[in-house]
């Protein structure tokens, strides 16, 4: 497959993987640590959404599905599919626990992207495309314009019944 097209498809898959799993696991509901709350309130002050801000704060402060997606992709590239992804899932779990996080989002994200990498290998997608794709996916959330991305995350949280009750 053409590398550019592959990276774009991998970016879309990675974006959906980590945003849906992180939202499902309740990242927009509440800040896990003080730092996540500071980031969430700061984003709200700049015109963003509080739930989306908590989501962004939480993925900065502990390895959630975004880190799981990236690390599993790197693991599959370096070690092989699916072993690299499975090893990454264990390492993400330990990283989560060190960050005072139960570890469901990160571990689930690593396992699901490992399955997706294995399945999409049949249409020519490679783990390295997922590494590049995940970098682009996380850039759209954390690197471009926080108020807009937090509003989008807030809307997704509302749709999935995970919107924050904190004022």
């Amino acid at each position: 497959m053409n590398e550019v097209i592959g990276i774009i498809i991998a970016a879309v898959i990675s974006w959906l993987n980590f945003v849906l799993i992180d939202t499902w696991m309740g990242l927009p509901e509440a800040p896990g640590v003080k730092g996540a709350e500071v980031i969430g309130r700061n984003i709200k002050k700049r015109g963003g959404d509080l739930a989306g801000g908590f989501f962004q704060g939480n993925i900065v402060c502990s390895p959630d599905a975004s880190a799981g997606t990236l690390l599993a992709s790197i693991g599959c590239y370096l070690i092989g599919t699916p072993e690299g992804g499975l090893i990454a899932a264990v390492l993400v779990f330990f990283g989560n626990r060190l960050c005072a996080d139960p570890g469901y989002a990160g571990t689930t994200g690593a396992l699901t992207i490992t399955i997706l990498i294995a399945l999409t290998s049949y249409i020519g997608l490679t783990p390295i495309m997922f590494i590049a794709g995940m970098m682009i996916a996380i850039l759209t959330i954390q690197g471009l314009y926080h108020p807009a991305s937090s509003k989008l995350l807030g809307k997704i949280a509302q749709r999935m019944g995970r919107y924050t009750e904190i004022e």
Binding site: W24, M25, G26, I79, G80, P82, E83, G84, L86, I87, A89, V90, L91, F93, P102, G103, Y104, A105, T107, L111
Partner: peptide, 27 residues
């Protein structure tokens, strides 16, 4: 709610750890 639970259970994390440890030994 499972997503907020710290309880160590058979499915999570025991099964996930078994998968990862087997992958490590294999590689």
């Amino acid at each position: 709610p499972m997503r907020q639970s710290w309880t160590t259970s058979v499915i999570f994390p025991t099964a996930v750890l078994a998968l990862g440890f087997t992958a490590m030994v294999s590689k």
